[in-house]
């Protein structure tokens, strides 16, 4: 891949964003923002569940850590805007949020990834719930009522063009989407990155080839937690309000669905699935108005079931969107 690919994609996406900013209504813009958050969640979980072959069920927990860190920081600690450019704050908030989540990831991963087998699913499930309950009982974080008044980045103007607040958020979000994409892509396509996949395919063999499997698994888990924290931070600034109930087990499962539906072990599959899963309930909304009843979740679930029956290996399987139709490998 070209060295300049991240920069070029950033410029292209930033320009596209100008159009989204001008032509989408606020409701669609919010959906779009959630799509970006979900893309980061799906990509990062895919590193653990897809590439490294471990089964984590605690992504909502790491996301919550990120979301509350960012909420707290942005309401308590604001540097004077005159000195530091406004958008940099938000990048900084998400960076710190990611680091907190990564530390939590290390604390959870270090003991549980040492064991071979499915312990991780149980431990992470428990972890997610513990985080939720801690927040629920913490008055500084708003408890069950939730955390209100989280600021989002304010609008910027661009050569005379007055832009909406959406665009500021969008810039920060695509910066992280691209960072997440390229960091994970580079990690897994290096020679050392194949260590992740060898663990998925045969952990004992990987171990006896000289791969420090525990360390590699922890590395994958910490990186994944970091980006989950970042996604949580973005989520809090996009919604302006967060509550413990948002970060329930259901949220974790939703991210697992994106990864499985997209194809574990494909970079682009989970991205595609994240888009579909975030947009589908919204796209089905007219149906609700038509029938007067909320059948959305029923239809949504049916679509998922059908997709999994038709493509049990996920939408893209192990392939990427750009070589989906090419039959290079025998599968």
């Amino acid at each position: 891949m070209m060295k300049s690919a991240p920069l070029i994609s950033f410029v292209i996406l930033a320009l596209m964003g100008l159009m989204l900013d001008q032509f989408l209504n606020p409701y669609l813009q919010r959906t779009m923002a959630l799509v970006l958050v979900n893309i980061i969640l799906a990509m990062s979980l895919n590193l653990v569940n897809g590439y490294t072959g471990q089964f984590s069920l605690g992504h909502a927990g790491f996301m919550a850590i990120g979301a509350y860190t960012s909420a707290y920081l942005s309401t308590h600690w604001v540097a004077p805007a005159a000195i530091v450019p406004h958008l940099l704050f938000f990048i900084f908030y998400s960076l710190v949020s990611g680091c907190f989540a990564a530390i939590a990831g290390w604390l959870v991963g270090q003991p549980s990834l040492r064991l071979k087998g499915d312990y991780l699913a149980i431990v992470t499930l428990g972890f997610g719930e513990i985080i939720r309950v801690i927040i629920l009982n913490s008055s500084a974080l708003g408890g069950a009522r939730g955390y209100f008044g989280i600021p989002g980045p304010s609008p910027i103007s661009f050569g005379g063009l007055a832009l909406n607040a959406f665009y500021s958020f969008y810039l920060v979000a695509i910066l992280w989407v691209l960072t997440c994409f390229f960091v994970i892509y580079r990690t897994i396509s290096s020679t050392h990155g194949r260590a992740f996949m060898s663990i998925r395919e045969d952990e004992i063999a990987a171990d006896s080839l000289g791969i420090h499997t525990t360390r590699v698994k922890v590395k994958s888990f910490v990186l994944s937690s970091f980006f989950a924290g970042v996604a949580g931070s973005l989520f809090s600034h996009c919604m302006n309000f967060i509550a413990p109930s948002t970060f329930s087990m259901l949220m974790s499962i939703n991210v697992v669905i994106m990864v499985v539906l997209g194809g574990m072990g494909s970079m682009t599959g989970p991205i595609l699935a994240a888009v579909i899963i975030s947009v589908l309930p919204e796209a089905l909304r007219p149906l609700q108005e038509l029938t007067g009843q909320d059948y959305r979740m029923v239809i949504y679930s049916l679509i998922l079931i059908v997709l999994m029956l038709v493509r049990p290996q996920g939408l893209l399987g192990h392939k990427e969107i750009w070589n989906f139709w090419r039959k290079t490998r025998v599968e």
Binding site: T191, R194, M197, E201, L209
Partner: peptide, 19 residues
């Protein structure tokens, strides 16, 4: 055998030289 099923033959060999 314990080969890595989703890696190519060549990738499998290269994993052998991981260290």
């Amino acid at each position: 055998r314990g080969v890595f099923p989703l890696m190519t033959v060549e990738e499998n060999l290269d994993m052998g030289a991981f260290i």
